[in-house]
């Protein structure tokens, strides 16, 4: 044991030898969890890919009805929220309590903006008769295949939206804890782990946006 570990001693759980081992284990655990998340979304990406190959033309047609402005704006919103999150992790390492709380709240706020825009878009889809089984109407050819596209669209964006919602919840709790000075003196592991999750959710959207909104040329 060296001198720096005296402050950290209270933070190290009994099963670990030192804070370094604890942090490494937590980070590895989170990355393994993210690998499972890739495959959790993966089932839907697989379905998308298969039907994209089989019904390529119908998918391109169906995709043109989606609102690319909302989708694109949402991409930018998430990217900027990721930037704030990265700075939040930095602030936690530098022990800047106010900064950390603010950045976490900012990230959560942008998450809420994303969800709001998503809600507006879903409503628009409903009005345009694009929700499968809920008054789905399709004027063009292959209405069945178009409905399949919209089923996958709602499944993928819906699963993503659930992840964003969970993320917002986590961020708000962390912001409260950060305000109460929970993450001082090197106890920043939780923030870093939450950050990894938030960035991952952002990455998923980076794929959803082009695959769903920009299937072929518009």
């Amino acid at each position: 044991m060296n001198t720096t570990t005296t402050i950290e001693a209270g933070l190290v759980h009994q099963q670990f030898d030192d804070i370094g081992q604890q942090r490494e284990a937590a980070k590895l655990g989170m990355w393994i969890f993210l690998a499972t998340e890739v495959l959790f979304f993966g089932g839907l990406f697989l379905s998308y890919t298969v039907y994209r190959f089989v019904y390529g033309h119908a998918f391109v047609e169906a995709s043109r009805k989606l609102d690319v402005v909302i989708g694109g704006t949402n991409t930018a919103v998430l990217l900027i929220s990721s930037l704030l999150m990265a700075f939040a992790v930095r602030a936690s390492k530098l022990d800047q309590r106010r900064m950390l709380t603010g950045l976490l709240l900012g990230t959560a706020f942008l998450g809420c903006v994303f969800m709001l825009l998503k809600g507006v878009e879903y409503h628009k889809d409903y009005v345009d008769h694009l929700v499968p089984r809920m008054g789905f109407k399709w004027e063009g050819a292959d209405p069945g295949n178009a409905e399949l596209f919209y089923w996958i669209y709602f499944a993928m964006t819906g699963l993503h939206a659930i992840h964003v919602t969970v993320g917002i919840g986590i961020l708000l709790v962390l912001a409260l804890l950060a305000w109460r000075n929970t993450f001082s003196n090197g106890n920043h592991n939780t923030i870093e782990i939450a950050g990894l999750y938030w960035h991952f959710v952002d990455i998923v959207w980076c794929f959803l946006f082009p695959l769903l909104y920009l299937v072929g040329h518009r």
């Binding site: 690998a35 993966g42 999150m85 990894l196 990455i203 980076c206």
Partner: peptide, 29 residues
């Protein structure tokens, strides 16, 4: 995705093990 992983998620500068964990999910997909 790679840019986010490298710089926001600090894969750049992480151990090889984390690189492997980050790639494994994609490989299996």
């Amino acid at each position: 995705a790679i840019v986010i992983a490298l710089f926001f998620m600090h894969i750049k500068g992480s151990s090889r093990l984390l690189h492997l964990a980050a790639i494994a999910g994609v490989m299996w997909l």
